[in-house]
Design a binder for these strands. Structure first.
Lengths: 193, 193
DNA sequence: GCGATATTTTCGAAATTACTGAAATTCGGG
DNA sequence: CCCGAATTTCAGTAATTTCGAAAATATCGC
């Protein structure tokens, strides 16, 4: 591996961590490399920098593409693809949340909806359905939340994170201020806009 | 597999999905089974229900234990461990967020802190460090947010999720209401409590 | 301590997944 | 079209993970 020591440490770490979040080592390493690189890199450069095979690079890049975590760029007079990560880390966060939702939540959501349509044939099944119903409700909330997150601009997203548990204080406030309180909610928020 | 059809579908699905979030099939299946079961089950019952080997069950249960996703219970006059998931799906959500943070974020956080202490030896390294700094900042925010989440009660947590992007409206409101606006923040919130 | 029962560990086979090198395909410019 | 560079696909191999049987260990009541 032919990299500045500081970058190499980072790249190796991401390779290891890759396993914990469902991608292989090469995918993790390439992502890390592109993230800290000050320019877009082509597949050949990536292969050399990481000491992996060219085909491995190709497959890993395809995977990163599927996750929408890298962009392809082109240079005039050069047919090669150059890869880079988005500059904006907030955008990266949005993409991650979105993709994880799509892969980890959505398939289960539709399964749960299907199962809950069936009639239980026993007490056990009735209980099982009740539990699945609880899970569905929570997942639907989480999904909607993740969708909403996509719409927030960087500043709001940062504020939202920074707020943290403070949100409960804010929610108290909301219920105390008449025009934001519960009841006739839709109309009221329209008026306030 | 010896289960009501409705439950079997659910269990098989969780087995498949297990792969996508870093646990193996047996772990996913067992979790699903315990989640919908109306009583705690012992290792033998789990083994029979799922048609897997006893040792496989044992290892998978240990893994679920490490994730703190199951509880062990005991019955008087019975030495066997009985396993169950928490009743409260909100508590389950908290545990999941907490554990994923611990496994997926924390190790990277400390690596980033270490790397950022070193002096860059080149322009490349300087840029790399700058990027890592951005990542660190975002991860620290996310971490703090996840920690705060642990402290919210079920009602607040539900409200927080239900609020979604509405939070930005709420943040506007906050900045407009004098006593909650920026500046002398600590004093003001104390007064309002 | 002893026997009975439950749990954990060990280890080899089977299955899955990751990686490579070579061959095939695609693509832009003459 | 045809050439050559670049990329992707593919088949074989290597590495890792999963799985189950059996042995070893721990725990309880007696």
């Amino acid at each position: 591996m032919n990299l500045p020591p500081l970058v190499e440490t980072f790249v190796l770490h991401f390779g290891e961590m890759g396993g914990r979040w469902g991608v292989n080592r090469a995918v993790g390493q390439i992502y890390a490399l592109l993230f800290v690189s000050d320019r877009a890199l082509n597949a050949e450069e990536i292969t050399d920098a990481l000491g992996i095979s060219r085909s491995n690079t190709s497959i890993a890049l395809k995977e990163l593409d599927a996750w929408r975590l890298v962009r392809r760029r082109h240079r005039p007079g050069d047919r090669r693809d150059y890869f880079e990560t988005p500059e904006d880390v907030w955008q990266i966060l949005r993409t991650l949340v979105e993709e994880r939702r799509r892969r980890e939540i959505d398939p289960t959501l539709s399964l749960l909806r299907d199962i809950l349509l069936e009639s239980p044939a026993s007490t056990e099944e009735r209980h099982a359905q009740a539990r699945m119903g609880e899970m569905l409700e929570l997942m639907e909330l989480a999904t909607r939340w993740a969708e909403d997150l996509q719409k927030l601009d960087n500043t709001s997203l940062r504020q939202l994170l920074a707020l943290g548990a403070g949100v409960s204080k804010l929610l108290e406030l909301k219920s105390k201020v008449p025009i934001f309180g519960s009841g006739a909610r839709r109309r009221d928020t329209e008026e306030s806009a």
